[in-house]
Lab assay of single mutants.
Amino acid sequence: SPEVQIAILTEQINNLNEHLRVHKKDHHSRRGLLKMVGKRRRLLAYLRNKDVARYREIVEKLG
């Protein structure tokens, strides 16, 4: 489901952010981070168009 995919991506994004705080010059990982953020944004847009209630619920849960 989109909610699960968004939750997994959010966790991976948070982990990668911590990694990049330590390894500032790791541009390869930064590119992966940007791809993940874009994918999460697309999934959220899809969910917002399909079911606003589910969209609001996941945004509330994940912050």
Score class of each variant (00 low, 15 high):
L9H: 01
L16F: 05
V37R: 06
S29P: 03
V4Y: 15
I58C: 06
H23K: 05
P2D: 05
R54W: 04
K35W: 13
Y46D: 14
Q5S: 06
A7Q: 09
H19A: 05
N17Y: 15
V59I: 14
K25E: 15
H28V: 14
L20W: 03
L33A: 01
P2F: 14
G63D: 07
R40F: 10
R40L: 13
D26T: 05
L62G: 02
K24M: 07
Y46E: 15
A7I: 14
Y46T: 10
V37D: 02
E60S: 11
E11T: 08
N15M: 12
K39D: 11
H23Y: 07
V59C: 11
A7K: 07
I8K: 11
G63C: 15
D51M: 03
S1A: 08
R30V: 09
L33R: 03
K50G: 03
P2V: 15
K50H: 14
H23W: 06
R30Y: 13
R42M: 08
L47I: 09
E57S: 06
M36E: 02
I13D: 00
R42Q: 11
L44R: 01
V52P: 15
V22L: 14
R42D: 07
E57G: 03
K25G: 14
V4S: 09
V52W: 13
N49C: 13
V52R: 10
H28M: 10
L9Y: 03
V37A: 04
L34Q: 09
N17P: 01
K61M: 13
H19L: 07
V37N: 02
T10Y: 03
R48N: 02
E57M: 06
K24I: 09
P2M: 14
R56F: 10
T10I: 11
I6A: 00
I8L: 12
N17H: 13
R48K: 12
N15T: 12
D26K: 07
S29L: 13
Q5C: 11
H27V: 08
R42E: 12
E60M: 10
A7G: 06
L34R: 10
R21Q: 09
I8F: 12
Y55W: 15
R56Y: 13
D51I: 04
L47G: 00
K25C: 14
M36S: 04
K24N: 08
M36C: 05
L9P: 00
S1L: 07
L43V: 02
L16V: 04
R42C: 11
N17V: 15
I58F: 05
R40M: 09
E57I: 06
L16H: 02
Q12G: 05
R41T: 07
L20S: 01
E57H: 05
K61T: 11
T10H: 02
H28R: 12
E3V: 05
A53T: 10
I58M: 07
H27I: 12
P2N: 03
N15R: 15
N17C: 15
K35H: 08
R31N: 07
L33C: 08
G63L: 15
K25V: 05
G32Y: 15
V22P: 03
R21M: 07
K61G: 10
L16K: 02
K25F: 13
G38S: 13
I13Q: 01
E3R: 01
I13K: 02
A7P: 02
H27T: 10
G32N: 15
I6Q: 01
L47Y: 01
N14E: 07
M36H: 03
L9T: 02
H19P: 01
K25R: 10
E18D: 08
I58A: 04
V22S: 11
A45F: 06
E57L: 06
K39C: 09
G38W: 14
N49D: 10
E57R: 05
N49E: 13
S29K: 08
Y55S: 01
S1E: 09
N49Y: 09
R40C: 06
G38N: 14
D51P: 00
L34N: 07
N15A: 14
D51K: 02
N14L: 08
N15G: 08
H28G: 09
R40A: 04
I8M: 12
E57Q: 08
V37T: 04
K61V: 10
H19D: 04
R42F: 07
L43M: 05
K39R: 12
K61N: 08
K24W: 10
K35R: 12
V22R: 09
R42Y: 08
R30N: 05
K25Q: 11
N14T: 06
L62H: 03
Y55P: 01
R31D: 09
R41N: 14
M36N: 02
L43D: 00
I8E: 09
R31Q: 11
E18V: 07
L44G: 00
R56N: 13
E11R: 08
D26L: 03
D26E: 04
P2A: 14
V59S: 03
R41V: 06
L16G: 01
K35E: 13
K39A: 12
E60T: 06
K24P: 15
P2K: 05
H19M: 05
R48T: 01
L20K: 02
R42I: 10
V59L: 12
R40I: 15
E3H: 03
L62W: 05
Q12P: 01
R41H: 09
L20I: 09
N49W: 13
D26F: 03
A53M: 10
H23Q: 05
L34S: 07
V59M: 15
E18Q: 09
K50P: 01
A53P: 05
Y46K: 08
H28I: 12
D26A: 03
S29V: 13
